[in-house]
C-alpha cells in the first residue's frame, strides 16, 4: 500500500512541477503512514535523481532504457504499471503536464485506478478520500471523491509549498519489460526552445498582447523577463498572427499558468485570456487604456504606454538585483 511518485525531467534536470509532486507524495505518505518511492525514466543522472531526497523521498527507481529518453505515452504507462505492481504501490502522484495527463489516463484504465487531474491540495482522508480539483478552467473547484483502492493524482502547479532539505535519495535501477507495440507512435523529431524558462513551470511570466504592435517589439519583454528570470507568454491573437510561437499562448485555449507573478503588457484581459492566468498569485497589468478589463483582475496596475513603462520596470528590477 505504498505511494509512488513519477518524476519528469527536461534536458536531464528534474522539472519544478515534478519536485512539487515529490513533496506532495512525501506529505501524503506522512499523513497515511506509508512508504513512498520515486521513479524516473530515460536520460537522467543518478546525482540529479538523488535530489528527490531534498523533498522527502529517499528511494528513487530509475528505468534507464534509452527507448524511454523521449516521452512515449503508451510505453510510460506500461512501465509505470510494472513499477507499481512490483513495488506494491496503490497510489501514484505526478504533475499535471502535456505528458503526465495522457500517461495517467492510460495507466488508470490499465490498473483499474481512480484518476484525478488538476488537483490543487492534499486530500481529505478522514472520511471518503476527497481531493480538490480545479475546474471550469480555473473558475471553480470540485470536491472530488476518489473510489477504490488504487488512485492516480495529477497535481496542478503550486499545489504544495516546497521546502528543501539536504537529504539525498538512494537511486536503484529498475528493469522494465518494454513491449514493441507501445512504440507504435514514433517520435521522429523534437523542437524545443533552448535554455529558456518553460512557461508552465515558471515562477514569473511576462506576457504580451496585441498592444505590443508587432513581433519586433518583443525584445523589450524578453529583456524584462530576463531580468526577472521569467518565461515569456502571449495572448491568442499574438500567436495566431505568428508573432510568437504557439506554445507561448496563454489562456482558455492555450497554456494555463499559475506563477507567483504574472505581468501582462498590452493585453486587454478578455475572459478567455483570464481563464489561463486566474490561478496566478499576483497579477500586474500594464495597459494604456484605464478601462481595460484586465485591471479588474489585477493586483497592481499601471496605466501607460508599454513602450515607455516596460523599459523603466526592467531598469528598476536590474537596480534591485544589484
Amino acid at each position: 500500500m505504498s505511494i509512488l511518485v513519477f518524476v519528469e525531467s527536461a534536458d536531464g534536470i528534474i522539472k519544478k512541477s515534478s519536485l512539487e509532486a515529490v513533496a506532495y507524495a512525501a506529505a501524503l505518505a506522512k499523513v497515511q503512514g506509508t512508504e513512498v518511492n520515486a521513479v524516473a525514466m530515460g536520460a537522467i543522472d543518478n546525482e540529479e535523481l538523488a535530489k528527490v531526497g531534498n523533498y522527502g523521498v529517499t528511494r528513487a527507481l530509475h528505468v534507464a532504457n534509452e527507448k524511454l529518453n523521449k516521452g512515449v505515452i503508451q510505453a510510460y504507462a506500461s512501465v509505470l504499471a510494472q513499477v507499481m505492481e512490483k513495488e506494491g504501490a496503490t497510489t501514484l502522484i505526478l504533475a499535471t503536464s502535456s505528458l503526465g495527463n495522457p500517461v495517467a489516463a492510460r495507466l488508470a484504465v490499465k490498473i483499474d485506478a481512480s484518476l484525478a487531474t488538476n488537483v490543487t491540495d492534499l486530500p481529505e482522508t478522514s472520511g471518503e478520500f476527497t481531493v480538490t480539483r480545479s475546474i471550469y478552467t480555473g473558475k471553480a473547484f470540485a470536491k472530488t471523491v476518489m473510489n477504490g483502492e488504487k488512485k492516480i493524482i495529477a497535481i496542478k502547479k503550486n499545489a504544495i509549498e516546497l521546502s528543501e532539505s539536504d537529504e539525498q535519495a538512494n537511486v536503484e535501477a529498475f528493469d522494465a519489460q518494454l513491449d514493441d507495440a507501445d512504440f507504435a507512435a514514433k517520435i521522429t523529431a523534437t523542437e524545443k526552445a533552448e535554455g529558456d524558462v518553460l512557461l508552465p513551470e515558471a515562477e514569473i511570466v511576462v506576457s504580451g498582447g496585441r498592444g505590443m504592435k508587432g513581433p519586433e517589439n518583443w525584445s523589450m519583454l524578453e529583456e524584462l523577463a530576463k531580468s526577472l528570470g521569467a518565461a515569456t507568454g502571449c495572448s491568442k491573437p499574438v500567436s495566431d498572427m505568428d508573432w510568437r510561437p504557439h506554445h507561448e499562448h496563454v489562456g482558455q485555449t492555450g497554456v494555463k499558468v499559475s506563477p507567483n507573478l504574472y505581468i501582462a503588457v498590452g493585453i486587454s484581459g478578455a475572459i478567455q485570456h483570464l481563464a489561463g492566468v486566474n490561478s496566478s498569485k499576483v497579477i500586474v497589468v500594464v495597459n494604456k487604456d484605464a478601462d481595460a478589463p484586465f485591471f479588474k483582475a489585477a493586483d497592481y496596475g499601471i496605466v501607460g504606454d508599454a513602450f515607455e513603462v516596460v523599459p523603466k520596470i526592467t531598469e528598476a528590477v536590474k537596480a534591485l538585483n544589484n
Binding site: S98, A185, K186, A189, T190, E191, K192, E201, H247
Partner: peptide
C-alpha cells in the same frame, strides 16, 4: 504534439 516549450513530431498509422 505540443510539449512544454515546444513540440514533437510523431508518425503513426
Amino acid at each position: 504534439r505540443e510539449i512544454e516549450g515546444g513540440k514533437e513530431t510523431l508518425e503513426l498509422s
